[in-house]
Design a protein around this nucleic acid. Structure first.
Length: 671
DNA sequence: ATAGTGGTAGTTTTT
DNA sequence: CTACCACTAT
């Protein structure tokens, strides 16, 4: 493409193939969609916004629109589908495939982060990013903050410096809302205001280390993609011309940074369709705001707006409760869901005399429903926070109910997995100081000081193993061992990922046994990881995928061999987004747990909790059980929790059936 | 300089 | 309960 003179007059040649089908469409879209859905599906060019209530066929619109575009002759590889998880993208593309055949395989789909990863590896050089960069997960970012904090030797003060976790949160908020640190500190962390200077220094150090060492954290993926699109005009054109049709799912959960990325991706054509529901915005902690969805037409003038209000998922009884919950929201946009599925069982509001009775109720009821013919895989238990399910997990295990837990603590975040990955990472990116540091600390006789000195040498040499062999003193033996192990693995491109893992494991197992009493289980985990690596041909892909799309099973289930389709789902509400089940249990509907007591401080956070409940109840197709235990001692606040969630206050009693759980032989009493 | 011990504060949701 | 810090003994 030649370089153009400044500001040429642009005359756009329309793609005739896209506007007028060259051949008859392969199916009758009007037949399979309601008029609102059809109108959205028929959009070809220009920006459009689809406000879609829960269960109103939002996915259907995306799927049919992609199918129809391809049907009209649009090249599938020019379509980009941005979703919340890659799984969601794959599911949608599978459905597109069922409509129009295998061409759908060529559609590009995934999360913002995974798409950014791919684009940056291809085009990042112009902004100083080598294709082999390493992605830091949350824990890595915290480690790096810790390292930098040590390096710049922050002066001791009598007041408490924020924790690493909190610091990473602050930095992340800055990135996601595109604000400077002082703003974020002032608005959300005013109690740490005194530390502004030190935190600013820390942030500078954190950012410059990442640049020097080819490290990229989650937010950087988006930040640097934005940077690339703005700074490198030819890359922007090339990318924008490649993806001429962009579709974004769950737009209410995008933040300002993501909005800007979309804006720039669509720089040359404005062909963007975003789909979302302001009532389901639940990612404010990540800088998302439902206002984003309202501002879309400003970002893209000429936006066509569509509304989908008919719910095809739930019965009227379930929907009635959902509408009542969201009715209490202070800020809401005009949208009332209706359905033609009359009646249905009323949702049950179940009181239990404590946590364990609640678990026993859920377990027993699930078994009953299964007897009645609901498959386990069509039932789910949802909760606000991952730990709310601990007791239930025990109860289900006792009764041999197979389940899969989604959300919460990840397999990938356990120490032994991170240790193994650190070794693989330095093989792939020898500049990765965070991983070097981690694996050096595992060696006898190496502490923070020695690790720091060694890392400085290691990132400055072409022959890391020579540096390791030079070591003397107490750690010499361990360092030599490490050098031998790394040499055995060789270069990143030598051999297959499972073989490379095998080499590392031979070296690492003794360390593991020494460090953990429960090493047999951990060894199984690592072997599981090795199995996962078989699907990959390069370390780079394996490592990137693990951080961007970690397997969504938590530690416990890794060795549960049950078939997926016969397992009950336990999930945080966040991880249940976009999914649906015939029977849904929402547990711990107690004030202090849901809404969480951490949200009591601000109205905005409380409102988000309310939307969270709305998301939870709208997952149910047929049966809905809301349970709340009473008389539970809460360590966090030191109080007894007994009051049902405040969000149920406004729910009129004729919308639910009140149940009380009692033990066999125990007297009944309510309250 | 490191490893091991004991005390204490914070404790959600995800890519 | 656990991760993080400060302190002490090697």
């Amino acid at each position: 493409m030649d370089t153009l003179k400044p500001d040429p007059k642009v005359y756009v040649l329309k793609r005739s193939s896209a506007d007028t089908p060259i051949r008859p469409l392969s199916r009758d879209y009007a037949q399979e969609l309601n008029p609102q859905q059809l109108a959205a599906v028929e959009v070809v060019n220009g920006p459009s916004l689809v406000i879609a209530g829960a269960g109103s066929g939002k996915t259907r619109v995306l799927v049919y629109r992609v199918a129809r575009l391809i049907d009209m002759g649009v090249d599938p590889s020019s379509i980009l589908l941005l979703t919340f998880t890659r799984k969601a993208a794959q599911e949608m593309l599978g459905r597109v495939g069922m409509l129009i055949g295998p061409q759908s395989d060529r559609v590009m789909g995934g999360t913002f982060h995974s798409v950014a990863n791919i684009l940056l590896r291809r085009f990042g050089r112009t902004i100083g990013l080598e294709p082999g960069f390493t992605i830091l997960d949350r824990g890595d970012s915290e480690d790096l903050v810790g390292l930098v904090r040590g390096q710049i030797g922050l002066v001791e003060t009598n007041k408490r410096f924020p924790r690493k976790r909190t610091i990473v949160d602050m930095f992340s908020k800055c990135s996601n809302t595109l604000q400077p640190l002082d703003n974020v500190l002032l608005n959300e962390y005013s109690h740490f205001g005194d530390f502004l200077d030190n935190l600013t220094k820390l942030q500078e150090g954190y950012n410059s280390t990442k640049r020097q060492r080819q490290l990229v954290d989650y937010d950087d993926l988006l930040l640097r993609l934005r940077e690339l699109l703005i700074a490198d005009e030819s890359a922007r054109r090339m990318i924008s011309e490649t993806y001429r049709y962009i579709l974004v799912d769950e737009y209410q959960d995008t933040n300002r940074l993501q909005a800007e990325v979309v804006r720039n991706l669509a720089a040359t054509h404005d062909n963007v369709m975003v789909v979302g529901d302001d009532s389901q915005s639940i990612y404010a902690f990540r800088g998302a705001t439902f206002r984003n969805i309202m501002e879309f037409p400003t970002l893209f003038p000429g936006t066509q707006i569509f509304k989908l209000e008919e719910n095809y998922r739930s019965t009227q009884s379930v929907l009635g409760l959902a509408n009542a919950v969201i009715e209490g929201a202070t800020e809401k946009y005009s949208k009332t869901l209706f359905t033609n599925k009359e009646g249905g069982e009323r949702p049950a509001l179940v009181q239990a005399m404590g946590e364990n009775p609640q678990s026993r109720f859920v377990a027993q009821k699930i078994l009953e429903l299964r007897e009645e013919g609901v498959p386990l895989s069509d039932m789910a238990v949802l909760f606000r926070s991952s730990f709310h399910a601990f007791d239930l997990e025990v109860e289900l295990t006792k009764r041999d109910v197979p389940f899969i837990k989604r959300g919460g603590f990840k397999f990938i975040e356990t120490a032994h997995v991170k240790d193994l990955l650190a070794h693989l990472r330095v093989i792939h990116n020898p500049l990765d100081s965070v991983s070097w540091n981690r694996l050096l600390l595992l060696i006898e006789g190496v502490g923070p000081k020695k690790a720091k000195d060694l890392v400085a040498q290691l990132v400055a040499t072409d022959t890391p193993s020579a540096v390791l062999r030079e070591g003397s003193g107490r750690s010499a033996f361990g360092l030599r061992n490490l050098a031998a192990a790394l040499d055995a693995v060789g270069h990143a491109d030598d051999g297959s990922p499972p073989d490379q893992i095998n080499q590392v494991l031979e070296y690492y197992f003794p360390i593991l046994k020494d460090q953990y009493d429960d090493y047999p289980k951990r060894i199984r985990d690592l072997e599981h990881l090795q199995g996962m690596a078989e699907r990959y041909h390069s370390l780079e892909e394996f490592l990137a995928d693990l951080t961007l799309e970690p397997p969504d099973e938590s530690v416990l289930d890794v060795d549960a061999p049950d078939r997926d389709d016969e397992r009950l789902v336990l999930s945080t509400i966040h991880s249940a987004k976009g999914l649906e089940w015939r029977s849904v249990f929402v547990i711990w509907l107690v004030d202090g747990r849901f809404p969480s007591s951490y949200s009591f401080t601000s109205d905005e956070e409380l409102e988000e909790e309310r939307r969270l409940l709305y998301v939870a109840v709208t997952r149910a197709k047929q049966h809905l059980y809301l349970t709340f235990p009473v008389n539970v001692y809460d360590k966090a606040t030191g109080s007894i929790l007994s009051k049902p969630s405040r969000f149920l206050d406004d729910v009129s009693t004729d919308l639910v059936d009140a149940w009380s759980v009692v033990d066999e032989g125990e007297p009944y009493h309510w309250g």
